[in-house]
């Protein structure tokens, strides 16, 4: 990594892709620097998969330019295939093959890369190397899919929703693997609709909605951009409706007060001053407090602030 931040690993300009009835990608611009982990964050149908698959040379764009590792798909496809590691959103690997056989097959396509045994050790599947793929758990399958993306010792790794559908423990395990690859100086582009995943793994994030980037920056910058550091939420056993929100809004450091599903949400800049004042005000109004929660603003809040919607409809 001589000049890690000067060279672009991926450059996308004015990318467009429409299917019969939807515009999946609508004039997208991206630049991913060598050595960084870049996240595409967005709700279902935002166009993340379409974008990443165009970059992977699997889908043809209607318009726009894509440059991967300084190369173009129409001229350098076979070189690019050797240098990219790819995990697709919904591949099912051959169920009848074992972990070892699967990786040996994938390894045979690449000129160079680690030995099969090394990749298996890397994703911690040693105990399962003789098991059939069909008998693996969801997390193990996902680690195998990651291993298949790593067998060619890629310069650039594309991961499309690497942890969707996994339990928290399996997700953390996968995050550690991705971080290790990142520490080795490789570039990663990943898509996700988990804000915690993006915050933990990504150096920079592009938030996508309806085929466009609506925000770009480090997770920290994006959170700071909405000007809210904390969120305070309380409920009061059915009495939340009678709270005088006007009075709450006048508390020092409180920016905005909203009612949502029987609870009250407040955007707050200084937690240490706002919370005591809130408790005092509720005491004065005689409102019994049944629940009080505070959390620091997340990328989810950024998305809500930008679109008025949540990332995932839960």
């Amino acid at each position: 990594m001589a000049e890690p931040l000067s060279k672009a690993a991926l450059r996308v300009r004015q990318l467009r892709k429409a299917y019969q009835d939807v515009v999946a990608v609508d004039g997208l611009d991206l630049e991913v620097r060598a050595g960084e982990c870049f996240g595409l964050l967005g709700p279902n149908g935002a166009g993340k998969t379409t974008t990443i698959e165009i970059c992977e040379g699997l889908t043809r764009a209607d318009a726009g330019e894509v440059e991967v590792l300084g190369l173009r798909w129409d001229a350098h496809a076979s070189e690019l295939r050797q240098r990219l590691g790819i995990q697709l959103q919904e591949t099912q690997l051959a169920e009848k093959l074992t972990v070892w056989e699967t990786l040996r097959l994938f390894r045979s396509f690449y000129h160079q890369g680690p030995e099969t045994a090394e990749v298996i050790a890397l994703v911690q599947l040693e105990e399962k190397q003789k098991s059939r793929v069909g008998n693996l758990s969801g997390g193990q399958k996902q680690r195998l899919a990651l291993a298949c993306a790593l067998v060619g010792d890629p310069d650039l790794l594309f991961l499309d929703e690497p942890t969707t559908g996994l339990d928290p423990q399996a997700r953390r395990q996968l995050w550690e693997l991705i971080e290790r690859f990142q520490e080795a100086g490789r570039t990663i582009v990943l898509t996700t609709h988990y804000m915690d995943e993006a915050e933990r793994l990504c150096d920079r994030v592009a938030i996508m909605d309806h085929g466009k980037t609506i925000a770009l920056g480090t997770p920290r910058e994006l959170i700071a951009s909405i000007g809210v550091e904390h969120l305070v939420e309380f409920s009061s056993d059915g009495a939340a409706g009678s709270v005088d929100t006007g009075a709450l809004g006048r508390i020092d450091g409180v920016r905005e007060v909203r009612r949502e599903n029987g609870s009250v949400q407040m955007q707050v800049t200084e937690l240490h001053r706002a919370v005591p004042a809130l408790l005092e005000e509720l005491g004065r109004q005689g409102v019994p407090l049944t629940e009080l929660r505070t959390h620091s603003a997340t990328l989810e809040d950024v998305f809500v602030a930008l679109t008025g919607r949540h990332l995932r409809d839960e």
Partner: peptide, 20 residues
């Protein structure tokens, strides 16, 4: 493991993709 990530080795002949 970090070395395994970056370790690069030539492909042994027995692993021709067609054979695999």
């Amino acid at each position: 493991e970090a070395a395994a990530v970056s370790g690069t080795r030539a492909r042994p002949r027995a692993r021709h993709p067609l054979a695999q």
